[in-house]
Amino acid sequence: MGLLAKAPEGRIAELLDARGDRPGHDWLRAPEIGSVMVRGRTGGTGAPFNLGEMTVTRCTLKLASGEVGHGYVQGRRKACATAAALVDALMQTECADAIRRAVLVPLDEEQAARRATRASKAAATKVDFFTMVRGED
């Protein structure tokens, strides 16, 4: 679900729809936009404190075959939350493997590539210290 939460705008729907029509569903909770209070810890490891909020969109749906899917995505993205919930529900059906290959694997690879690019750029800015020759006599 972490992969789905962080997927770029529209990407889940794109991958999901590429493999055919979406199954029908009923809403148990229609997509809604809200906030989550993000917490940190004093000194990084101490007591929790409230840092500030972030926007989150969530929904819950039920497939005709009965599986319940939850979608939680970062930001205000009702279409993405819907697609995420459908993927979550379909992962409980017999087409779980197909969905994994069609949606989750590409999302995972794309996320890993984005991370690797940033990490490589950061690594290029790492300081290599060298010792100046000291006059020691």
């Binding site: 809200g34 989550v36 209070m37 993000v38 940190g40 969530r58």
Partner: peptide, 30 residues
């Protein structure tokens, strides 16, 4: 912000596990 329903609070974020774009120390070179 005041118009948004609050879904809850997060677990405290783990900054030791940050994917750092920048990380410097003015106290330890190495």
């Amino acid at each position: 912000r005041t118009t948004l329903p609050r879904f809850g609070a997060s677990r405290p974020v783990d900054t030791a596990d940050m994917a750092c774009d920048r990380r410097i120390s003015a106290t330890f070179k190495d």
